Amino acid sequence: MNRRLKSILQKTDLYHPLQTSYRAGRTWLTNQLYKLTYRPHKGPGLTCNFCGAEYKKFVPEVPGPDIAPAIQGNNVIAGYGQNVYCPRCLSKNRERLIKAVIEKYLPLAPAARILHFSPEKNLYRWLKHHASITTVDTAPRFYTRIDPTIRYADATRLPFNNHSFDLVIANHILEHIPEDQMAMHEIHRVLAPEGIAILQVPYSPTLPATLEDPEIDDPGRQAALYGQQDHVRIYAFADYLRRLAKAGFNVHVLNPEDLAEFRIYATQPTESVFLCYQH
């Protein structure tokens, strides 16, 4: 959609409803296509831990030629791979990983209070049956089909009291936020004293320093540098841990070896999980 048309639609309050309907329709058609084309691949091999479907392989997602140099050239762990989407329910590898980690490492009490940023459909629907969940985003109208009660929230100025949540999930959120250190501090503030935040981001295990330039405000350059038009950095692994610690978190990293048992769920084999404790 060109910028002028987008601006006109936003002024008439039609942009979000039209975009949401378009995305929903496209997702439905994509899902039907995958169900049909992956029918020959049904059978033992990989299992979706949301819908229970079994396939010998899942749907791949690889970076396009415009962003591949940023992703592959910097060895970014960003969710791309050969087994990303479940052909049946379209759950993504990073959703399935979070579910598996919560089930094994973070069993939810019935009264648990969860804050879920930019909620993924399958993960949100599973969580809402196990705890009290609040969802937020800076563009909440894009998510009303997932959670009609989603509310607006700026991660750098969260509208919640101290210690409001037992678990916070921000799955690939911080790389979008210029003032990420403020967002980390805010997440730490709203966590209960025994609370845990799962704060996943694209990161590079080989970059010597986080790749970012606050002066860049151009979607094309951001895509070329960081691998996505609305990303503002690629985190270096060690620097990401340092930033989390600076915000007050005690970080426990589940490395790929710790997570190997979850590969049956078609998770990304090289991804680590960042469990960030309030203290």
Score class of each variant (00 low, 15 high):
A260V: 07
E215C: 13
I198E: 00
K35M: 08
F160W: 01
D218A: 06
T210Y: 05
A24L: 14
N171D: 09
P17A: 01
P40G: 01
K56E: 07
N2V: 12
R145F: 06
Y38I: 03
V76K: 09
R233M: 05
A131G: 05
H163M: 00
T210R: 09
E61Q: 15
I114E: 01
Y240G: 10
E186R: 12
Q10W: 06
I71K: 10
H163Q: 02
L33V: 07
L5T: 08
C86I: 04
L123A: 04
D66S: 12
W28C: 08
Y226N: 00
P205V: 04
T270E: 06
N93M: 02
S204I: 10
E175P: 12
S118L: 10
I169D: 02
E215K: 15
Y105H: 13
P63I: 02
M184R: 13
N255L: 11
Y203A: 10
H16Q: 13
E61F: 14
Y85G: 07
N2T: 10
I71W: 03
P269S: 02
A266I: 00
E186C: 14
Q278W: 10
H172T: 03
L199G: 09
Y124G: 05
Y34S: 11
Y124E: 01
D217H: 14
T37F: 12
I150K: 03
S91E: 02
F142P: 08
L14G: 02
V84Y: 01
I77Y: 06
L14T: 02
P60V: 02
F142N: 11
I71S: 08
C89R: 00
R151Y: 00
D66N: 08
N122Q: 13
